[in-house]
Simulated scan of single mutants.
Amino acid sequence: MARDLALALKNVPLRAPAPLFERTRPPRGILNSQIGFMRALGALACVFVVVLPFIDASRYTMSIATSALIYVMLSMGLNVVVGYAGLLDLGYIAFFAVGAYISGILTTTLGWPMWAALPATILACMLAGIIIGAPTLRLRSDYLAIVTLGFGEIIRITANNLDVTGGPSGIHGIPTWTFGGWSFDDGFTLGGIQFPPYVVFYYFVALIVVTVGVIGAGRLAKGKMGRAWKAVRDDEDAAEAMGINTYIAKISAYVIGAVWAGLAGQLMATHLSAISPNSFQFLYSVLILMAVVLGGMGSTPGVIIGALFVSLTPELLRDFAEWRYLIFGIMLIIVMLFRPAGLWPATAVLPWLKKKGRAEAPDFMEEPAEPSVMESASGLPAEMAEEGEGR
């Protein structure tokens, strides 16, 4: 009897138990889903960027908008380092300087076109990230912040004392982007509308920021590497105990952040056509870090909002003359008092999508019949089980 029952149980296929109740599907739509609303908001932002020159195409507006987009690029790179990996970097402006000076030297001294200097800028920033990050990323918290601050000042002082970087005068006459026989200085006409050079460069910067800065950093954060960064940020010891190579994770975040800053530095050098060591002071590292913290560390929309707030607010307050920075500081204090996690933190939920209480599970307190217990235990029909017991 026992042998027959064991043989019968051996040949019965195992089946997963059916769920007790059906799981509700995630909501969809713009107003019913967080993801849908964010995608719609991002699409509206892209439309606004495209339409802005048709609203106001003055040189001042385009210059401020281009600088704001470059700030967004910088903030997205620092968000990888600080927001995702949890590495407090106070010398992030050093990579911004490396990208600007490498592109400036190659295009003015060696006569390279700007597009040819782009791969060299990326490689130089990766090398700088490894050189600076390799010895420093074994440190944590305050010690890491102090060392990165020192490296940022070393890069600025070195550029101030080298002949190839122009010394205190910097590099002047940095050319714009050229493709074949056409350059941004020529502008172009589309649909009977003449687009001047500064408007064309604004579009170019917007294209790079949207594709590389925002989409690239967001996709990296959702992948395997991004999960490793967040694990290191939350608890480095626990992440290492779970098998994550924390040193590789940190240095990869540092190198990627350096590449983002280098691209922004090359765009800024082309935008201003001149750079000097005074353009890379410690204050700018603080402003970029302020944009990340103010917007919400680890949040892509929050970092964009923070970068726009930090870059545009002083310009909007220009009518207050010498009082504008005082007003700007007061605004920062008010924001941090009422929104300590940032204007749009990574855990933000739209007000009309606040999580409600869990739905109560159906009542399964009824006593099951004895045959069904035997059936669930053996996987056999109740009649077969009873026949086995009779034998």
Rank of each mutant, 00 (worst) to 15 (best):
K10V: 05
V12D: 04
I35A: 14
A40Q: 02
L44D: 06
C46V: 15
V47P: 12
V49I: 14
F54M: 11
A57T: 01
A57N: 12
R59P: 04
S67V: 10
A68Y: 01
L74C: 00
L78R: 07
V80I: 15
V81S: 08
L87A: 13
A97T: 03
V98N: 07
S103M: 09
G104A: 14
L106Y: 01
L118Q: 03
A124G: 09
A128F: 11
I131N: 06
L137C: 01
R140D: 09
A145C: 10
H172N: 15
G180N: 05
G181T: 14
F184K: 00
G187D: 01
G192L: 10
Q194M: 13
P196T: 04
Y198N: 14
Y203A: 09
V205E: 00
A206P: 08
M225Y: 12
E236A: 10
E240C: 03
M242P: 04
I244P: 03
N245D: 15
T246K: 05
A249G: 13
G265Q: 03
Q266P: 00
S273F: 10
L283A: 14
S285A: 13
I288N: 11
G295T: 05
S299F: 01
G302I: 09
I305H: 07
T313N: 08
E315S: 06
L316V: 10
L317I: 11
D319Y: 12
A341K: 15
G342M: 05
P345H: 01
A348P: 00
V349W: 03
K354H: 01
R358S: 13
E360R: 15
A361M: 13
D363V: 09
E367C: 07
A385R: 09
E389G: 07
